[in-house]
Write a protein that binds this DNA or RNA. Structure first.
Length: 513
RNA sequence: GGCGCAUUCGUCUAGGGGCCUAGGACGCCGCCCUCUCACGGCGGUAACAUCGGUUCGAAUCCGAUAUGCGCUGCCA
């Protein structure tokens, strides 16, 4: 029998990283076993579900490279793929369960039930539904229905215990008495989650249910339904939950909870994807650069540790830096151009640099609001794109995330400017004026504009001027960029171009007069 | 309250009775390299939740306890 798995997010918001991980694992499991991966939208609660959320979920999955074999946009034998479109199927199964005596109508009102719950709580007892309506006679049921009393449908939980296996845990055993007859159809006729999932999974012929461990407690109820239906029970794998560094559920405070926020900081999707996989698993550096195909072949979901994992932004960033360092020049250049375009850098380098100075997260926040407002990003000019690519090898080992490029190399894209602090630093650098003037003259005269020629020239300066080497470098660095941290000095001067480099050094020299 | 799941350095983990005076990675600290910042190299810091048992021997097996999380809904 071939493997069929499903990922079933509810479209009540964007795709949370934890859910993204669940989707990924399902996808990998399906591919690894040559199975089918179904994407199902759990929108049984239409009041909280939006089409926009569905679109976002789909785009996040696609960005990670996850493709489904059946689901929205990809018709197949197990459709439809939105629960709101499957009500007819639920109806049919409810009728079946009714006919086989597994369901019964219940006339208890929410108020009555709440009172029972309160009482149980006051007596410090576990509350389960009393089963009062289970004993109602057929004629009484008919009479009450005819009288227009609202009723729900409950599942008749049999005595005994329910046991299920989990691919990464010990078997879980639950006493059925603790479950209590639960509602499967609301008084408005709509179907409750626990029944809907089972009917969906049965009709979609799902063989492996891979989902978050917050569903462990629901599983026994669902198994009871499988058994009532006479359907084969699938295998379960309940994944550990993903928390923030404070052991709480991931939230905005943790920097990012969705993929788009992470990529807006300049984290690469493939790195995020790999990171999500290696959480809860032994980590090996070689995995940083794994492709989706590598994951399919070598990543085994069943090796997951069952304990919850904490999302560690530091390690993610470190992985991202490692990934960047192994990219070749063209690749990095391309990625930088795409990224810088997205954050609006080419439209207004100065403004974006200001935001970026507050850190990648501030930048990501700005990008998010720009994207929410559908503000189009300015494409780079040919010169800007070219310059970015030229700079790629100069900045590679200084980047952890792509956003780091901006404070580091933003000065290449705008006129030279000095903060008060930078001006003071320059003024306080011994021999700065002489260094700048001399370097400008030498650079203007150097016959070939190459990094090697520039280096040779600059290295002459200390002896020539009687200024310490460190001071020479500091003066030139400050002079060409207005900042104390830049890519390599010779390479930077070279990348600026002869005219620009000379002009900047002269401008800086004038500042000291 | 009841039930369930989980529990090795701050974090992710290796470990499935002797190879463990517990290994790796991130972080942090120090040193080296060095034109700044980094990269890289080297070294250091730091953990078997607790208490009992089983055993010649336990991080590994068993039992309690504690803590965290989840479920306990006419939410999913």
């Amino acid at each position: 029998m071939s493997v069929i798995v499903r990922f079933a997010p509810s479209p009540t918001g964007y795709l949370h990283l934890g859910s993204a991980r669940t989707g990924l694992y399902n996808y990998l499991y399906a591919r690894r076993h040559g199975g089918t991966f179904i994407l199902r939208i759990e929108d049984t609660d239409p009041s909280r579900s939006t089409d926009e959320a569905i679109a976002q979920i789909i785009s996040s999955l696609k960005e990670m490279g996850i493709e489904w074999d059946e689901g929205p946009g990809v018709p197949g034998p197990h459709g439809p793929y939105r629960q709101t479109e499957r009500t007819g199927i639920y109806r049919e199964y409810v009728d079946r369960l009714l006919a086989s005596g597994h369901l019964y109508p219940c006339f208890c009102t929410p108020q009555e039930l709440e009172a029972e719950r309160q009482k149980a709580r006051a007596e410090k007892r576990n509350w389960v539904y009393s089963g009062k309506c289970r004993r109602l006679g057929a004629d009484e049921v008919a009479r009450r229905k005819a009288a227009g009393e609202p009723w729900t449908l409950r599942f008749k939980v049999p005595p005994g215990t329910t046991v299920f296996e989990d691919m990464i845990r010990e078997p879980v055993e639950v006493d059925n008495d603790l479950i209590g007859d639960f509602i499967v159809q609301r008084s408005d006729g709509s179907i409750v989650y626990n029944l809907a999932v089972v009917v969906d999974d049965v009709t979609m012929e799902v063989t492996h249910v891979i989902r978050g461990d917050d569903h462990i407690s629901n599983t026994p109820k669902q198994i009871l339904i499988y058994e009532a239906l006479g359907a084969p029970v699938p295998k379960f794998l309940h994944m550990p939950l993903l928390f923030g560094t404070d052991r709480k559920k991931l939230s905005k405070r943790h920097g990012a909870t969705k993929l788009e926020q992470l990529t807006a900081q300049g984290l690469l999707v493939e790195v995020v994807r790999n990171y999500l996989c290696f959480l809860s698993t032994e980590f090996d550096e070689s995995m940083i650069t794994w492709t989706l195909e590598d994951l399919v072949r070598d990543f085994d979901v069943e090796r997951l540790s069952p304990s919850p994992s904490i999302f560690d932004p530091d390690k993610l960033r470190w992985m991202n830096g490692r990934f960047i360092r192994q990219m070749d020049d063209d690749e990095l250049g391309e990625r930088l151009v795409v990224y810088l375009t997205r954050v609006g850098f080419y439209g207004d380098p100065v403004a974006v640099e200001q935001v970026a100075a507050e850190g990648p997260q501030a930048l990501a926040a700005a990008v998010e609001s720009a994207e929410a407002a559908h503000r189009p990003a300015t494409e780079p000019t040919a010169e800007q794109a070219e310059l970015t690519k030229t700079l790629a090898p100069l900045v590679r080992e200084k980047l952890e995330v792509l956003a780091d490029f901006i404070p580091l190399a933003g000065f290449f894209f705008r006129p030279l400017a000095f903060s008060d602090e930078a001006r003071e630093r320059l003024a306080g650098t011994p021999g700065a004026a002489a260094t700048l003037t001399q370097a400008a003259a030498d650079l203007r005269a150097v016959e070939s504009w190459t990094v090697a020629a520039i280096e040779a020239l600059v290295r002459e300066l200390p002896a020539q001027l009687g200024v310490k080497r460190k001071a020479v470098f500091a003066a030139l660095r400050l002079g060409m960029s207005g900042q104390t941290v830049t890519p390599g000095l010779f390479e930077s001067l070279w990348a600026l171009g002869r005219d620009e480099a000379v002009a900047r050094l002269e401008q800086a020299a004038r500042l000291l007069d």
